[in-house]
Amino acid sequence: MFSDYSMSELGAIFAMQGFAGLILFSVFVLMALGLAIIFGQMGVINMAHGEFMILGAYVTYLMSNFFADYMPALFSMYFFVAMILAFIASGALGLFVEWAMIRHLYKRPLDTLLATWGLSLILQQIYRSVFGAREVGVSIPDWMMGSLPVTDLIEVPINGIFVMVLAVSISLAVYILMFKSVWGRQVRAINQNRVMAGAVGINTEWTDRLTFGIGCGVAGVAGAAFTMIGSTGPTAGQLYIVDTFLVVVFGGAASLLGTIASAFSISQAQSIMEFFLSGSMAKVLTLLTVVGILMIRPQGLFALKLRK
């Protein structure tokens, strides 16, 4: 199948396909980070995670309309405002949900899964009633349009680069939060030994709530970034939820590094296979491989060594 292409063309195809994989990777990382915080550190299955993400996307959509109507001069910068607001909106909803629902279910993880699925249905219907069933797209500022020619055969889209930069910076921010801040130390302490953490004076209830809120807030930022490369619909979140959970589980639930590594391998495998096979078969093979590896190694790629 390669005989029709010259060497340089082949190289370009692999580079472009690899780059498409990198964009997918960034999206996976952004989505999985929030989940890695919530599921990895707290052990809570949040099936409504995709809907928190979509909330961020809709906030971005609203902000882009608002800036276009009232502050066209600042339009090129609206995305950064939208991102902060998306974090606040999703985070606040997360805090509320933890207070109203999740905290009563900590001892029943399977029930949390069902309850948050119910929440996701409700949120989807609310989005559909408020924003309509159709997908909406945001207007991207001029500086994000177009693509950068690297060589005469390879071109990379600027919005893709932007999403990648965003993924890297948010990963860094989460890393610093987890490993350098007081909150991060408390979260990890609770993850390792809840009773002891409580005994040394950590407010475990409040830390749990904050953790859930921050995880949801990161999902909101992921949703905001998502609008730069795709359109948003009420059910868009559901499409990604299984992928995202697999990314987190595959990486080893409690390991941030594992999440990033597994997001990278899954996205690259999928986008490279997509070139040789049909999109659906590439997806099937990727998922099967991941599930197969998980059957052999249930603890994921990077398992934390904990004394239980």
Partner: peptide, 14 residues
């Protein structure tokens, strides 16, 4: 219906 179904999930569990 979707609101009802979602509410049902939450109500049954909680």
């Amino acid at each position: 219906w979707l609101l009802g179904l979602g509410g049902l999930f939450i109500a049954v569990v909680m």
